[in-house]
Structure formats: C-alpha cells, structure tokens
Nucleic acid binder design. Structure first.
Length: 421
RNA sequence: GUGGCCGUAGCUCAUCAGGUAGAGCACCGGAUUGUGGCUCCGGAGGUGGGGGGUUCGAGACCCCUCGGCCACCCCA
C-alpha cells in the first residue's frame, strides 16, 4: 500500500456509487428548474472573515472546524464550511439584490470533524436560497421543493419534517436570559456538555440528547412564549400553507439551529435510517444576514441538503439503481479484424449516438474477450475475426436470454440491432 | 477534541493457548486449438497498516503511531 493516501475524511466517490450521485443530481436540478430557481456557481475558498461574521464567531464551526490558512500575501482564507455565506456575498457583490433572487448551488464543503457515518471532512451540499422575500409563502415554497424532491427520489417515507420558529434576535436574547437563569439554578443536574453550553451557546442545550437534561427542560421557559406577534403570525401562516398543500410536519419547540444567522422559521428533514447523523436537509430564515454582510437590508430563507446522507438513503431505499454498463461489447481478433472493427464501430457510434458501445482492447483470445463481454453487462457482442474481415460481415451474438448468433453483411447491422436492442 | 471496537491476499474472513500464513469470491490460464454465463483443473497474488519492545522465535503479547467503523460532540 502506498504511503500517499487521501486526506482523512475526504473520500473518493467510486464508479460503483456514481449512479446514485447522478440520479440525485439530476432530480435536484429538475425539481429546482420546475420552481424557477437559477443555479449559481461559487468559489470554494473565501475570506475567513466572511464565515466569522455570518456563521458566528462562537460556533463550533468557526472555532474549531474550519480549514483556514494564509494566502501567499498573508490574507486569511478558508475552505467554505457551508454555502449560504458565499451565496449571499456573491449576491451583494454582483448587484443581484435589486429584485428577489431564487438561487441554488452545489459543491463540496469542508469541516474538520471526526469522520463517522454520514459525516466527512469534505462533503457535498445542495443549497437553495431565496433572497428578498419576507413573507412565509416563501418559506412554504422551499419546503414544498424539498417534499417534491423526496417524492421524486422515492424517499418520502424515509424522512419527516420538523418545524419551529425561533423568532427575532431580540426574542431569542430575552429567552436565552430566561433559560440561562432557569438552568443556572439547576446547573448540577445538567450533563457536562450542557454545562459548557450554558456559557457558550445556551440554546443548543434544547436539543441535547441527554435524557436527564431533556427532563429538566420540561419545566424550563419555552421559546414560544417569547415570540413576538409577527413571528407567531408568520409561523401560523406557514403551518396553514403546509396543511393546505398536504405536507406533514411536526412542530418541535426545541428545534434550534447551530448557525447564528437564523431567525423565525427553522426546519429540519430528519431520518432514523442513518444512525446518529439523522438530519438530511435543514434550513430556515436569515433576515439579518444580508445587512450584516454589508448589503441593503434584505429578508431571506434557505436550506441545505447533505448529499452523502441522501446517497446513503437512496442506497437503502432504492437499491436497484442500475450501475453504469454497456449495451454492446465489441470483440475482435487479428490485425485485419481489429482494423475493421475499429472502423465499423466508429461508424456505428456516429449513426447511433447514445448507444453505449464498449470496444475490447488489450487483445486476448476469443474466449477471454467473450468473458469480458459477459461481465460488461452488454446485451450483445459484435464479433470480428478473420472470416468477417475477409467477407465484410460481422457476427452478432445475443448475450442475454435466448437467441442464436448470426453473421450478416455490415450493411445489415443496423436493422439487426433494431430487432435486438 | 473524548470514548468503544477494529486493521491478515483486490474483497469478505479464518488460522493461532507465540515456531516464519489459509479459504471463499474476484483475477489469469486450461478442459482437442473462433465464443461468455454452469462445472472441473491449474496459476498468480500477502515484507499480516507502520515503528519500537518482550522472546531463542510474534501476524499473534506490550507500547507508540497511522488508518477504519460506530458513538459522544457537531451538523447537512
């Protein structure tokens, strides 16, 4: 084994998995096109300050998970840990915000975490952002996009929607104080992690996995009580729109997000089929972010999907996606035959674009070439030997099911293929 | 960053109370010489993750290190 290896947590995606990725990517592009979203392509590297100012300086992502390095001139750069910040930056910088924008993007993201199932250091997201719309019909549409995609992918039974409103930053500040006050009085009963979060990020205690902590929270003040009238109304509107559209959801008053820029609506699509990393898609409103990054005050909502996690779900729920294969395998033995096969196969590819023709290379006996033909999954083998080369013919051999091989004139090949493919 | 389990042929694993490694699958070749799938025969393939230690002797025991999986944490 070579001593040069892939970086930990940065995985190769192999041919055997590509069918799932392409299936997913195609479905995503088609669904988003159906809602009028435009793709935008963004850099993988940005100024470090972009992420510090958007995600939040005291979040784990910024504090200990970013791949940050100095450029040759000393500037601090960072491999993007998520896509929203860069998308907003581009919208501001490129002057896109004169009118509302519905954007999506995809690509690798980087976070230095300990790898485990559904979590790697280089991973892929599709992000969808709607900039410039403040009303909850926008939130509803984004959720409908997700729901349609799950249906498209055959994953509608694999995921469920959790929904909450976390209100304005003022409401959260008031709630945070109240929550901290409540928990501080009971600090000894908190698990170790939550005690730490009490000082760093108290809201995250709400979705602690610790049972005792959760029990303690039953008596705690509720975020809902602190919501202002607008947040309440918008949330009610969103729920009624989802009801009307027939989208099922569960209101989870303890759902909070790990990135600082969210407000009002937050949601998560979760599954119990992936072990500990159950969130497959998540997002929410971030009305303050554009202004925070220097743009004109612009409301926004968005979400991101984790593609590795979705591929894992697809492999579980759609195990029969066909691996890439060939339709026709070309076998040739002998100099004249190989020449004839090459020319005829090229001509066939010109006439039949889309037909997947795997031409054998590397020599070998007819026997060994036929073995390869069989393993390729091709439905037919086209065989050229000395006889065919001398008589301008080709032998067509069906490899699946019944059917005898026939040798016919090259001019008859197309009609023969019509009958066999 | 923390913890548990694990690291033997390309893959899945076995062996061994420590004496210099095996199987299945995959791969290559053959079964009267221009043909696959089934069967049979044969072959190639491992410095046993890497380093150090204990021992007359270690893949097997100890330490370190790298890596993998899962969980915590975090989050998509």
């Amino acid at each position: 084994m070579s001593d040069i290896r892939a970086i930990r947590g940065m995985n190769d995606i192999l041919p055997r998995d590509i069918a799932y990725w392409q299936y997913l990517e195609k479905a995503v592009a088609a669904v988003l096109a159906g809602y009028g979203y435009s793709e935008i392509r963004l850099p993988i590297v940005e100024q470090t300050a972009l992420f510090e100012r958007s995600i939040g300086e005291v979040t784990d992502i910024v504090e200990k998970e970013m791949y940050t390095f100095a450029d040759r001139n000393g500037d601090s750069l960072t491999l993007r840990p998520e896509g929203t910040a860069g998308c907003v930056r581009a919208a501001i910088q490129q002057g896109l915000l004169g009118s509302p924008q519905k954007l999506w993007y995809t690509g690798p993201m980087f976070r230095h975490e300990r790898p485990q199932k559904g979590r790697q250091r280089q991973f892929h997201q599709v992000g969808v952002e709607a900039l410039g719309i403040a009303t909850p019909d926008m939130d509803a549409e984004l959720i409908l996009v997700c729901a349609r995609l799950w249906r498209q992918l055959g994953l509608e039974d694999a995921v469920t929607l959790e929904l909450n409103s976390i209100g304005s930053s003022a409401a959260r500040r008031a709630f945070r104080e109240s929550l901290v006050e409540y928990l501080r009085a009971r600090e000894d009963a908190l698990d170790e992690d939550s005690q730490r979060r009490l000082h760093s990020n108290p809201l995250r205690i709400l979705d602690s996995k610790n049972a005792q902590t959760q029990a303690l929270l039953d008596g705690a003040p509720s975020l809902e009580e602190f919501l202002d009238e607008e947040a309440r109304e918008d949330f009610a509107t969103l729920c009624s729109l989802l009801d009307a559209a027939g989208v099922a959801y569960r209101i989870n008053r303890r759902l909070v997000r790990g990135l600082d820029y969210y407000n009002k609506t937050v949601f998560e699509w979760v599954t119990d089929a992936l072990g500990a990393q159950g969130t497959v898609c998540a997002g929410g409103r971030y009305d303050g972010l554009v202004a925070q990054l220097g743009g004109r005050d612009t409301p926004a909502v968005g979400f991101a999907m984790g593609l590795e996690r979705l591929v894992l779900l697809l492999q579980q729920f759609q195990p029969d996606l066909a691996p890439p294969g060939a339709d026709v395998y070309v076998v040739a033995l002998g100099d004249a035959a190989q020449r004839q096969a090459l020319v005829s196969t090229e001509a066939l590819r010109t006439r039949r674009a889309g037909l997947r023709i795997h031409a054998h290379s590397g020599g070998g006996s007819f026997k060994s070439q036929m073995k390869k033909a069989d393993k390729s999954g091709a439905a037919l083998a086209l065989v050229w030997g000395d006889d065919e080369a001398a008589s301008d013919t080709v032998t067509v051999k069906p490899l699946r099911g019944q059917g005898e091989q026939v040798t016919l004139a090259l001019s008859e090949l197309d009609t023969a293929l019509d009958g066999l493919l």
